[in-house]
Every structure is written in structure tokens, then in C-alpha cells.
Design a protein around this nucleic acid. Sequence first.
DNA 1: TATGAATGAGTTTTCATTCAT
DNA 2: AATGAATGAAAACTCATTCAT
Lengths: 200, 200, 200, 200
Amino acid sequence: MARNIEKDKQMRWERKQHILECALHAIAKKGVGSVEIKDIARESKISVGSVYTYFKSKDDVLKEVVRKGQEEYRIFTKNIAENSDMNSLDKLREICTIWLDLKSNWAYTILLQSVRSNETVHGELRDTVTKRFTRNLEPISAIIREGQANGTIKDGAPLELAFYFVSLIQGLTLQRVPGYEIPVNIDVEGIIQLFAQKTY
Amino acid sequence: MARNIEKDKQMRWERKQHILECALHAIAKKGVGSVEIKDIARESKISVGSVYTYFKSKDDVLKEVVRKGQEEYRIFTKNIAENSDMNSLDKLREICTIWLDLKSNWAYTILLQSVRSNETVHGELRDTVTKRFTRNLEPISAIIREGQANGTIKDGAPLELAFYFVSLIQGLTLQRVPGYEIPVNIDVEGIIQLFAQKTY
Amino acid sequence: MARNIEKDKQMRWERKQHILECALHAIAKKGVGSVEIKDIARESKISVGSVYTYFKSKDDVLKEVVRKGQEEYRIFTKNIAENSDMNSLDKLREICTIWLDLKSNWAYTILLQSVRSNETVHGELRDTVTKRFTRNLEPISAIIREGQANGTIKDGAPLELAFYFVSLIQGLTLQRVPGYEIPVNIDVEGIIQLFAQKTY
Amino acid sequence: MARNIEKDKQMRWERKQHILECALHAIAKKGVGSVEIKDIARESKISVGSVYTYFKSKDDVLKEVVRKGQEEYRIFTKNIAENSDMNSLDKLREICTIWLDLKSNWAYTILLQSVRSNETVHGELRDTVTKRFTRNLEPISAIIREGQANGTIKDGAPLELAFYFVSLIQGLTLQRVPGYEIPVNIDVEGIIQLFAQKTY
DNA sequence: TATGAATGAGTTTTCATTCAT
DNA sequence: AATGAATGAAAACTCATTCAT
């Protein structure tokens, strides 16, 4: 008779997360501007109507996907930055390797750019995204500061270097369009060496 | 009579170029997937119908905008690469400075990303864009090879380094959304130093 | 055992009445054409699915609400009309006062209008409503006839006067939208005097 | 080549008015809550898309229909009220007769009630409608004051009497649902006599 | 050529009804 | 019985393209 309210809530949350993940893939395939609710529904293997059971509108889905992506990214970099078992360069290596490996990051990066540069997106969301991006530079910045202290990373303003590092990785990520890859090898070690302090 | 036909052709060509420039800005503002013919018309200060006097379809406008942008970029980098009055690092400095300065590059970079990553864009165009992008790495690659030869630029596969250089600049460009800039300073010298060979 | 079945039936009937009352308010708030099953469920503090446990369809709810309303109205006017302790004008006064006082009458009157004037409502229901309305004029008409006989109510076809009386009260009721009242005083005595015979 | 801008504006305005008139009829047939843009388009003999060329949304159409209706009603009553060739009772007779004769008034009255009593309609519009309704009582009120001055109309607060008069006519109008009329004769003279001062 | 209204195919969104739990 | 998520048919709305002026 009665339902387990707690369990219902949990399931609802899980299904929402599932849709968000599928939405990210759908968006990655068609672009923010072109993705249809139909695509998100198909990718999630649910009906079009059901998407609206979990989200108010298409815009609402987009907003949530971005939020989730930025949160996960923050946790990802923060965990690596605070790992005391790795040295600074290894931390950058790890971030670089995992980031460039994950297929979904490509989709997420494209979405992030689209949202920020798209005038039809509500200003408040664009602002939030920009602020979170800035805040998410901190863990990288911390790694660089640490590396500079022990002489393994190049001199320079840590925040600026973090900004270059992230922009480079994002720039490279965007080039990896499935089916339309630039036929140039990406070598993590080569990237890390750009930021490493040469020692003698 | 023949004179007037010539003149008409010229005017037609000029108006087409004008529309293409305006279309670039319209696309940058709303994204490839969301831009409407109405937006392009408004930006160009002409009517919707008139756009169709100069272009066969929305897709046709898109194709032309991308072609024009990539051609101009090629000429820009080629000219700098072949300039014998500048040393290698100065050439990279020049490309970096001018690129990050030009407002229209932001629009163009976004457009490029949008076209390549958007599944609704015709495959042929996406393929062409990818190929031209790859080909456009050559002038940068040449500068790097030159710099490595005279010991001013870091060692490493020139094409890969060129790819990193371009990706970094594009990555930074994408962050510079008008009104939503990341509040971190971008210092050309800092970027160049990532690629410079440290000498003693 | 038989006792429980009886009790179950009784409870079912009571819950149906509860839903009908709540449905009336939901309809009054949003209009017949706009009200959703969800609204009726919310107002009744039960789930959407439960509404279907008690009623076959949305149309079925509607039909029942109207029937209930008209039946109650008939009983209300009939009781007053047949009350031998009141004189004719007092009867009209009583009807007028109670009708304009009851909040639920506003909802019911709006519902009645909506149903009759809404093409999407099944013709049979609209017809039934019209017929019952006409039949419900009788008690008022009887009061007027009685009043004319004893010289307290104006001359004229009783049924027509009853029609005017009811229309006037309904017209006034419709103006009393909660929160959007017309800022003009409604004075029962003033209304009654329109129908009273002036004596000297 | 160039278009007559003035003429274009004029035509646009006329077509808008045409759609509004047709929309009123469509609304009258199906009710505010049930009318579809399709219905309005069909009634106007244009395509669905074209309705959106002239109006932002379905809501916008409704808003404009109400505004137009109330404006026309104001002009109609004001003209009669200010006509010095008619006596007070004749003025009321004229309003009553014309109002009850016009088929479109039925639709308009239903719409007016729907908008005011519909919670889904934006509060600002409901407020505006209520205020205009109140203001539109003035011409009737003026007629009644005039009639009381020359002894042809019953004593009582003119604004209240005007409110009763209008409510009665609106109440009667609402009963005249095409196809579902109450089979009771409506006699303008009988209505007027409710408000007339009996003289000896 | 220039214009912008008209069109209709395609999307987004809503909601009565069903159904698994 | 009770619940509320799932569904899909239908309604609202958008927009590339056409076309009369």
C-alpha cells in the first residue's frame, strides 16, 4: 500500500542523474543549439514525456548538465591536488591524461563553451558557469604553486599558468571531435614539459 | 554596358562579404545551432528575403563564412611565418598578440568549434574544416622548426608543438566571452615562454 | 461481513463527495477548459491515480460536479419557496442573501457557465444542464406568482421575472472574483426593490 | 522596389483587427481554456504560423481580444449616454436591445468572465480588466443619474443601480448559448420597467 | 532587387490515462 | 486501494524558405 518514500526519492535522484549523463552525450553529438528533447529521451531510453517528469524544460536540462559537469570536475581536480602521494608534475600528468582520455569530457567541454558563449542562454547561468570555471582554477593553481616551491614547475604567476594549462587542455579536447580528429599525436609528456622547470 | 555588368558583379561580391562578416558575429552570439536567418539579416541590416538573394540557403551562408575565415587565417599566419625580418619567437609573439587582440577571432574560433562538433552540419563541410585546420598548422610548425634550428624554441615534434600552441591560443580565445571574461590576466610573454628554449 | 461492505460503500460515497467539492473549487479557479486532473487531486489532497479509483474519467468528474451543484441549488430554492413562514419578498431576500454570501456559489456559477458555453463539453451534458437550469426557475417563479397575488411583487410574466432575478444574481456572483472584486457595494435591499411592487 | 511603409503598417493593423474578431468567435465557440490557435487560424482563414506573425503567443491574442472588446463597449455606451436626442429610459432601452441582439456580445461576455475568473491568467491582466469594467459603469451610471433627476428612473445609488443593470444584462447574455438557450422570452421592456420610476 | 508576411514541417511542451509497485 | 512515474497523442510555438508586391 504505502510506498517507501525514501527509496522513491533515491530512485528519482538516480534517474535524474542518468538522464543528465545521457543528455551530455546527446548534446555532445548534436551541439547545444541543435539537440532535441527527442535525442535526450532516446539516449536515456525513456519517452519524451518522461524527460519532463524530471525536468521543467529543455533549458533546465542543459543548466543541470553544466552544473553537474563543473561539480564533478572540481572534485576530480581537488582530489588530485590534495593527494600527498604524488609529486606536482605527476599531478598535472594525471589530470592531463585522465581528462584527455575520457570521451565524455569532450562533450562536457563543448557544452561548457556553448553555454558561456551563447547569447540565448540566460545571463545568470552564463555568469554562474564563468564563476565556477574561475573557482575551479584553484586546485590547479595550488599544484603549480607547490611545484614552483620545490623547483619542478616553471616560474610565473600560478593562477595565470593554471589558466594556460586548463585552456590548453580544453583547446586540445575540443579538437578531438569523434570522426573528425586532427591527425596530430597528443603526447601528455610533451604538454607537461611546457610547464616543467628544466633542471641541470 | 560591359562596364556596368562588371560593376554589378563587384557590388554583389562586396555585399556578400558584408553579409558573411555579419553572419560570423551573429553565429558567434547564438551558436551555429541556434542562429536564425533573421539574426543574420538583422546584423547585416538587410531583410530576410535579401539574404536569399545572395545565398542559396542557411547552410550555404555557413559554409562560406567558415571558408572565408580559414582562408584569412591561413594568409595571416603564412605572412608572418615567411617574414624574414622577424626572429622565430617574435613571430609566435606576433601571432599570439594579434590573435588575442582581434575581437572577430573570438567569433571565428567559436564558429570553427561549433561547425566541427555539430552533428547537424553536413559531414563534407566538417571534413573540409578539419583538413584545412590541419593544413593551417603548417606555417606555425615551420616557425617552430626554424626556432628549434637556431636554439630559441624548445625541442619536440614541431607539428605537435604547433598543435599545442594553436590549441592553447584557441582555448584562451574561447574564454574571452564578451561580458563573461575569466578574471585572470593573459600575458603574451608568459605564453611564449612556455615554448621558448631556456638558454644560459 | 455484510456490515463491512455497507461501511465500505458509505466511505467510498463520502470520498467521492469530497473529491467533487474540491473539484468544484479547482474548476472555479482555472476554468473547465484549463483544469487538470492534477489540480483536482491536489485540491482533494489525494494522488492523481486515486481520482481514477473513484471516477471513470475527467469528463465523469465534471458531469458529477455539475449534477451535484444543480441538485443542491434546487433543494435550496425549493425549501425557501415552500416555507410558509415567510412572505414572498422575504423569500427572495433570503435567496439573494444566502446566494451572494456563499463563497462556493461563485465557483458553482462559473462552472455552470463554463459547461454550458464550452463546445468541448459533451452535448448531452450541456443539454442536461440547460434543462435543469430551466426547471430550477420554477421555485423562484412560484414565489413571484405568489407575491404578485398578494400585491407585493411587480406585475409581469412570472417566469420571465424569475429569469431576470436569477440572471441578475448570477451576473453579480460572477463579478465577485476573489481578489478582483468590482468596488461597488451590493445591497440586497436595492436588488429586491427592483422586483417589489410600490404601494401607496 | 521600395514599399509603401505607411500602407504596410495600415494593412498590418487591419489584419490584426481581423484576427482579433475571428479569435473572439473561436473563443465564443470553444471557451477560453479550450480554444486552440488552430481554431483561431481556421476562423481567420490564415495559417497557424501567421497568427504568430501578428501575436507573440496565444495569451497575447486573448489579452488583445479583451482589450478591444472593452474599448468598443466603452465607446458604445458613452455614445448613447451622451446622445441628447434620447431620454434616459430610451438610452437604457437602446443599450439593452443592441447588447442582447449582437451575437458577438455573447462571446465577448463569456471571454470577459473567463479572463477575470481564471487563475492561470496573469494577475496584471485580470486587474486591468476589472478596472476597465468598473470604469465602464460610468456612462450607465450617468444615464441613471440623469433619469433620476427627471423622475423617470428609480431612486438609489446610481453606481449600484448601474452595476445591477450591467450584471443583469451580462447574466442574461451568458444564458444565450447558441443551441442551448433557456426557453424563456427576454423582453427588453420588462427589464427596463425594473429600473423605471412608476408615475401616477 | 528588396521586402517582410505567409506557410507548414518540425520541435517543444502539456496532460489524460495507464500501470508497476 | 493508493501512489506517482511513464507514456504518447495532441497542442503550442519556431523558423527556413517562398512569394506577392
